[in-house]
Amino acid sequence: MTSSLPPEFDRGVVTTVHQGDCHVSAAADLTYSTVLGSCISACVRDRVALVGGMNHFLLAEQSGAARDRYGASARYGAFAMEQLINKVLSLGSGKKANLEIKVFGGGKINSALDDVGAKNIDFVRQFLHDEGYVLAGQDVGGTYARRVLFKPHSGRAFVKRLDSDMGANVAREEIAIAKRRVVARPPVDDIELF
Rank of each mutant, 00 (worst) to 15 (best):
A60H: 08
A97W: 04
F158R: 08
Q83T: 08
D114W: 12
L128K: 04
I101K: 01
H129T: 13
V124Y: 03
A80P: 00
S154R: 07
V44W: 03
A171Q: 04
F123Q: 02
D165T: 13
L128E: 02
R11K: 15
T143R: 13
H129W: 10
R75T: 06
M166C: 10
D115L: 08
G106L: 05
V17H: 04
V148I: 15
N169Q: 14
L149A: 02
E174P: 01
L149G: 00
D122L: 09
A184R: 03
D10V: 09
I40T: 11
H129F: 13
S25V: 12
F104T: 02
G53A: 09
M81N: 14
F79P: 00
R181I: 07
N98F: 06
H23I: 08
A60W: 04
Q62C: 07
G37K: 02
G20R: 03
G12I: 03
D115P: 03
V103H: 00
I175T: 06
L91P: 00
D21F: 01
R180I: 00
A65W: 10
S164N: 11
M81P: 00
N120S: 14
D190E: 14
M1T: 10
V35D: 03
A26Q: 10
H23W: 13
V13R: 12
L91Y: 12
K151M: 12
A27Y: 00
R125Q: 13
R185W: 04
N110A: 15
R146S: 11
R75P: 02
D122M: 12
L91I: 05
G53Q: 03
D190W: 09
A184D: 11
Q138D: 10
D139R: 12
D130E: 13
H56P: 03
C22E: 10
V170C: 04
A112Q: 14
A136R: 08
G53W: 03
Y133M: 13
V183H: 04
R180P: 00
A145F: 02
E61V: 06
Y144H: 15
A176I: 07
E100I: 07
V182K: 11
A80Q: 15
D114F: 12
D189K: 05
F123I: 07
R161L: 11
S41E: 09
R181S: 11
